[in-house]
């Protein structure tokens, strides 16, 4: 399926029961140079909207919230040593974690690309 987005600027891409989560291009641009990333360990139970990862730019620390509930399958092991990947490719190699969805119905509450583009256009206005 295609990407879904949260108002907190996370994206999720679902393939079968597994969703891959990261932060958006808009979010990385707002944060600026990212210097530290902490990703969740496999097996951790997540609840939609709860804190799942940490991203820090030169100036500030921010939590990354999970768009869906489920169990972490894998954190992106490359990010702690190369946090700048999130700046360079936020919606590709800069993914944060993969989660096995416990309630795929939660995806219906998220924005699609068109709705998210409209949302950030309003934020920037």
């Amino acid at each position: 399926m295609s990407l879904r987005f949260t108002k907190d600027h996370e994206w999720i891409k679902v393939d079968g029961k597994i969703g891959t989560v990261g932060i958006t291009q808009y979010a990385q641009a707002q944060l600026g140079d990212i210097v530290f990333v902490e990703v969740p360990a496999a097996g951790r139970a997540l609840k939609a909207g709860g804190e799942a990862a940490v991203v820090e730019s030169v100036k500030a620390a921010s939590e990354v919230y999970t768009p869906v509930s489920g169990t972490v399958k894998e954190g992106n092991a490359n990010l702690p040593d190369a946090p700048q990947t999130v700046n360079e490719d936020p919606q590709g190699a800069g993914w944060f974690f993969k989660v096995e969805l416990s309630d795929p119905g939660e995806l219906d509450g998220l924005m699609d690309q068109a709705a998210y583009d409209k949302y950030i256009a309003e934020l920037s206005a």
Binding site: H9, L31, V55, A60, S62, Y65
Partner: peptide, 8 residues
Amino acid sequence: MADPQGSN
């Protein structure tokens, strides 16, 4: 993601 900037 939490808002890194406050508003003023």
